[in-house]
Amino acid sequence: MAALSTGAAKAHEFWLSPDDYTIAPEDVMAVRLRVGQEMKGAALSYLPNAITRFEVVQGDTVRPVEGRLGDNPALQMPAETDGLAIIVHETADSELNYSDFAVFQRFVAHKDFRTALADHAARGLPETGFRETYRRHAKSLIAVGSGAGADRAIGLKIEIVALANPYTDDLTAGLPLLVLLDGAPRADTQVELFQTAPDGTVTITRHRTDADGKVTVPVLPGMEYLVDNVDLRALPNDDSKTGPVWHSDWASLTFHTPGEAQD
């Protein structure tokens, strides 16, 4: 997990990557923790000290993931019941020291934090030598057997909820999503959609939630998807020498659409 403490890893996405998004009951769910760019990245091993929460949710049943040190895939558990499985993973905090202000500038521009640079200057913060803590909040949807069921809010600091089941519902008009921060809808925020085709081609589009924190993203049959949303907030410390001055929380959701990709 040391890779997550580097500046490069922080700027990259973190997501849950099932070996197979559609499995039969009693088959083993194998899910990797990935960090990288454009849906390509290293698989991280199971390290308990780097994990705050790791669960499999099916209906009213919540099963903690209890891996062994170094497991890769980090999650290897049998699917006990038919239906939609929600995989939940929350990391511990990591810390980044900015030695190049351009890295911070690119980050806030990419994730659409429109006032961050002005706020940074107004707080009297330096352009180098300041620190940020960050935490990842990831979910993935796996269809076990019929895949029937629904995603729901499961209490992460920041999370993306699918308002339709990507395995059983009609997605002709797209997949509706809800973005939550502290349990409340997050209005007018950027959502990044990564689409991976069977040949590995990745297409990235950006979307915005409405006043109710909802957005419908376009999806096609036979594709893997990652949805991303990030929050950045100022910490109550304006002295960069005494501790971190910013904190970011990252939400991700992965799923796969059924059917065959069209040429």
Rank of each mutant, 00 (worst) to 15 (best):
F14W: 01
F14V: 13
W15A: 03
L16R: 03
S17K: 09
P18H: 01
P18M: 12
D19P: 00
D19H: 07
D20H: 12
Y21V: 10
Y21N: 00
I23H: 01
I23Q: 01
I23Y: 07
A24P: 01
P25T: 04
P25C: 06
E26M: 09
M29H: 01
M29Y: 00
V31S: 04
V31N: 00
V31F: 06
V31K: 04
R32K: 09
L33K: 02
L33E: 06
R34F: 00
V35M: 08
V35T: 14
G36R: 02
G36H: 05
E38Q: 14
E38L: 13
M39T: 00
K40V: 07
G41S: 07
G41C: 05
G41T: 04
A42S: 08
A42T: 13
A42R: 08
A43S: 12
A43E: 13
A43I: 03
L44P: 05
S45M: 15
S45K: 11
Y46S: 13
L47S: 15
L47N: 10
L47H: 10
L47W: 08
P48V: 10
P48W: 09
P48N: 12
N49G: 15
N49W: 07
N49Y: 10
A50I: 13
A50N: 11
A50Q: 09
A50C: 10
I51D: 02
T52P: 03
T52Y: 11
F54Y: 15
F54N: 04
F54R: 06
E55K: 05
V56Q: 05
V56D: 06
V56A: 05
V56M: 14
V57N: 12
V57Q: 10
G59L: 14
T61M: 10
T61P: 00
T61A: 12
V62I: 15
V62R: 11
V62N: 00
V62G: 04
V62F: 14
R63F: 07
P64K: 08
P64H: 12
V65G: 03
E66K: 15
G67R: 04
R68A: 14
R68T: 15
L69F: 15
G70D: 13
D71R: 03
D71N: 10
N72W: 03
P73N: 01
P73L: 08
P73M: 08
P73E: 08
L75S: 05
L75W: 03
L75D: 04
L75C: 13
Q76K: 14
M77E: 14
P78I: 08
P78D: 07
P78Y: 02
A79S: 08
E80G: 09
T81L: 07
T81K: 04
D82P: 07
